[in-house]
């Protein structure tokens, strides 16, 4: 006990209520995709909806709907989207309502307009 106290005073508190600094390896975790809406077209969105194995993607008119809760972060959309989808690197995804996990992404022109 005295040793713990001494070490705590010498080195500072070593435990926190929640990781104050994200673990470096957490950057490599598989995460749901984030989309660049400028690069999304309707055709591309439909293709991504088709290849999503967990039904996490759907298209509603000019919106691509990403269900973060259903996403398994498999990476298929990222590999097939030619840059329109990239890992979001977000993993603190706990939600108090299911609808918080539904993300609507506006579909752009399919190319970056200068």
């Amino acid at each position: 006990m005295a040793l713990w106290l001494f070490r705590g005073l010498r080195k500072g508190v070593v435990t926190t209520r929640y990781p104050a600094v994200t673990d470096p390896w957490a950057r490599g975790l598989p995460t749901p995709p984030a989309f660049d809406e400028r690069l999304l077209s309707r055709a591309l969105a439909d293709r991504l909806v088709e290849i999503c194995p967990s039904r996490a993607l759907a298209r509603e008119d000019d919106c691509l709907v990403l269900d973060v809760g259903a996403c398994t972060a498999c990476g298929r959309c990222i590999s097939q989207s030619a840059g329109a989808a990239r890992p979001s690197r977000l993993f603190e995804l706990a939600a108090t309502g299911r609808e918080q996990l539904l993300k609507r992404i506006a579909i752009g022109s399919g190319e970056i307009v200068a």
């Binding site: 984030a34 977000l90 996990l101 992404i105």
Partner: peptide, 20 residues
């Protein structure tokens, strides 16, 4: 902790600061 996900847009160019 408060939940964070409802503030995220999952759009790369969002001010949410996705480091893509």
């Amino acid at each position: 902790l408060s939940e964070k996900v409802s503030g995220e847009s999952f759009v790369g160019s969002s001010p949410g600061g996705l480091d893509l």
